[in-house]
Nucleic acid binder design. Structure first.
Lengths: 177, 177
DNA sequence: GGTCGAATACTCAATTGCTGAGTATTCGAC
DNA sequence: GTCGAATACTCAGCAATTGAGTATTCGACC
């Protein structure tokens, strides 16, 4: 039973926990405060399910805190495997164009703060993915008007994505020098 | 209990049935043949669920055919309300940018075949939607680096979409004269 | 010093959209 | 005459998400 890949929201949780251990509630707050919620709207109840899933996979570890007659709360932190999984994800470009504005933005969010040079490298790799995608759709045959329309739509979107990535890469390089 | 809006796939079914009554199976074939399936992958079993929903809403009407000891099959056709619903949808631009490459493409698919001038008019209205969207994101405040990044991504995508729509509108106008 | 609303911290049941796998018949090719 | 492809449809179950709920503590204000 091959496990499905984690969702963007789940990786984002790993990202926040990579910095410091947090309660589920704090993770939710980070999402809102940092603006990730606008890109990837993980509701509270969903967040706790994600956390549970991550724990089942051994990527995070929650420890129970009991204080007075408060209902027990849990502090979550990344395991070794959690760190590895997150780091691998962080440096891997996405294959599908529609993921650029979701998962890829999340990657940039976390990588930029840690490692500007790494972010620039990731951008370059993502630009290459875009080029490959553009080439595939330029080569696609267009048996009829509608398929031509679809191909043009995909092409123009992918080119715009590539250009935007390139602009941002340049910006990072200039800021880095 | 306000009913949810129909899915793009459901509108597409209305579109096919607007031309002629069909069996569910035929609708599925149209999806594949005409290339709609690549944009909007409606599996067979899903298609029949959509048909049932459309029938419950009184937008299509299925009549049972019994031949020999064949399992009964149903021929679906649009009702009056079905025609109205479809026509309204067909001429309405979409509000969200991500729908341009889904629902809006479907609209173009159906409208282009019937009414090139109407398609050109729809394109103009959709361009206006894009402009409004661009203006909203240009005005959005960018309290931090990440939100600036997100805004830039949205902006560049919306501008590319607008340009693509405009190119196609021009093309239609030139072909129409 | 009491109370009231906001913040903290989490859980669970229900829903919704979809997938996969199944059924039953007919038709054409060999 | 039989075997695979095409026709035509159904159903049970899952997986991701939503919404609504629970329980406690803290700070502000009267």
């Amino acid at each position: 039973m091959a496990e499905r890949d984690l969702f963007p929201g789940e990786y984002a949780i790993l990202g926040f926990l990579a910095d410091e251990p947090l309660h589920g509630y704090d993770v939710a707050r980070r999402f809102k405060q940092e603006g990730l919620y606008d890109v990837c709207p993980v509701e509270q109840s969903l967040l706790y399910q994600y956390l549970r899933n991550l724990e089942n996979r051994g990527l995070v570890q929650g420890s129970e805190e009991r204080v007075g007659r408060r209902p027990p709360r849990r502090l979550f932190e990344l395991t070794e495997r959690g760190h590895e999984t997150f780091q691998q994800w962080l440096h891997r470009p996405v294959a599908r164009m529609r993921d650029v504005r979701l998962a890829f933005l999340l990657k940039l969010f976390f990588l930029r703060k840690r490692d500007v040079a790494g972010a620039a490298a990731l951008l370059d790799r993502q630009v290459a993915e875009c080029e490959a995608y553009v080439a595939r759709w330029e080569a696609a045959d267009r048996p009829d008007e509608f398929r031509r329309l679809v191909a043009d739509a995909k092409l123009s979107a992918a080119q715009a994505t590539r250009d935007w990535l390139q602009r941002y890469a340049t910006e990072l390089q200039e800021a880095g020098t």
